[in-house]
C-alpha cells in the first residue's frame, strides 16, 4: 500500500510494507466498526418524545460485554500485530544474512562517502571504488553496510529500502539490504547534523549485474589512471 506513495526496492521494504498494510487494515477495520456502533447508538437512542433518559451503570452482563468484548478483540489484534512486528524486526534488524558484498558508508558534514569493493568483491584492497554522494549496488544481491560518521550524528536514510540507520561518531554500525528493483533513488540524511543538513542528498543506483560490472570496470580504470597521475 505504501508503494502507492513511494516504490519498495528491497526485501526489507516489502516486509515493512506488509507490516504497515497489516496494521492499517486491522486498525482501519475496527475503527470503522467502532465508529459505526458509536453513531448507530447515537441514532438509536436519540431523544424521543415521551421517553425518559436513564442512568446506565454498566452492571448487567449484556451491557458490560460492549466493553469486555472489544477489549478481547484489541488484545487478540495486539498479539497478531506484535508477532508480525517482531518477525519483521528480526528479519530486518537482528539477523544479518551472509552478504554477497560489503560496502562502507561514511557520513560527514555534509556529504556521503561510499566505499565499494572492486571486482575482487573485497574491501580494503587496491581495486576499491570510492565515490562521493553516489552509491552503486547490484540488484538481487545481499549487501552488508558498515556505517560510520566522521563528525556528528547523521542518519543514513534510503526511503525506497525503508532503511533508516543513525551514524554515530566513534562507532561502526552494521546493517544490510537486498535490492529488488533497478532504478535511481534518493539517499538523505535523516538526522539534523548542522547548517548544511538539507544539502547532503546522495543518489542510489540499483543496477543489473551487467550494468554494475560495467560501471565498476569504468571506475576501476579511472581510479587506476587517477592514482597513477596522483602518485
Amino acid at each position: 500500500m505504501l508503494e502507492w506513495l513511494i516504490p519498495a526496492a528491497s526485501t526489507s521494504a516489502e516486509e515493512i510494507d506488509w507490516l504497515f498494510t497489516l496494521i492499517f487494515y486491522t486498525v482501519g477495520f475496527w475503527f470503522l466498526v467502532a465508529q459505526g456502533i458509536f453513531f448507530g447508538f447515537i441514532l438509536k437512542f436519540r431523544r424521543r418524545p415521551g421517553v425518559r433518559s436513564q442512568y446506565i451503570a454498566g452492571e448487567s452482563t449484556d451491557e458490560k460485554r460492549w466493553i469486555s468484548w472489544p477489549h478481547y478483540v484489541v488484545i487478540a489484534c495486539d498479539v497478531v500485530l506484535i508477532a508480525g512486528a517482531i518477525a519483521v524486526w528480526r528479519d530486518v534488524k537482528q539477523i544479518i544474512p551472509t552478504p554477497d558484498e560489503t560496502i562502507r558508508v561514511v557520513a560527514q558534514q555534509w556529504a556521503w562517502t561510499f566505499v565499494h569493493p572492486g571486482p575482487d568483491h573485497r574491501l580494503d584492497t587496491p581495486d576499491d571504488v570510492v565515490t562521493v554522494n553516489e552509491l552503486h549496488v547490484r540488484n538481487d544481491a545481499t549487501y552488508v553496510f558498515e556505517l560510520s560518521s566522521r563528525d556528528v550524528v547523521h542518519s543514513f536514510s534510503v526511503p525506497v529500502f525503508r532503511l533508516k540507520q543513525d551514524a554515530v561518531p566513534g562507532r561502526v554500525i552494521t546493517g544490510w539490504f537486498r535490492p529488488t528493483r533497478t532504478g535511481t533513488f534518493d539517499i538523505a540524511c535523516a538526522e539534523m547534523c548542522g547548517i548544511g543538513h538539507a544539502l547532503m542528498p546522495a543518489v542510489l543506483h540499483v543496477e543489473s549485474a551487467e550494468a554494475h560490472a560495467a560501471w565498476l570496470g569504468d571506475r576501476t580504470t579511472v581510479a587506476a589512471a587517477s592514482s597513477e597521475s596522483r602518485s
Binding site: 555534509w110 556529504a111 562517502t113 565515490t131 562521493v132 566522521r150 547548517i195 548544511g196 544539502l199
Partner: peptide, 15 residues
C-alpha cells in the same frame, strides 16, 4: 573523499 573541508564547502556553495 579525503577532502573533508572541501566536501563541507561544496553543498554550501550549491545553496
Amino acid at each position: 573523499p579525503d577532502d573533508e573541508t572541501g566536501l563541507q564547502m561544496r553543498p554550501m556553495a550549491t545553496a
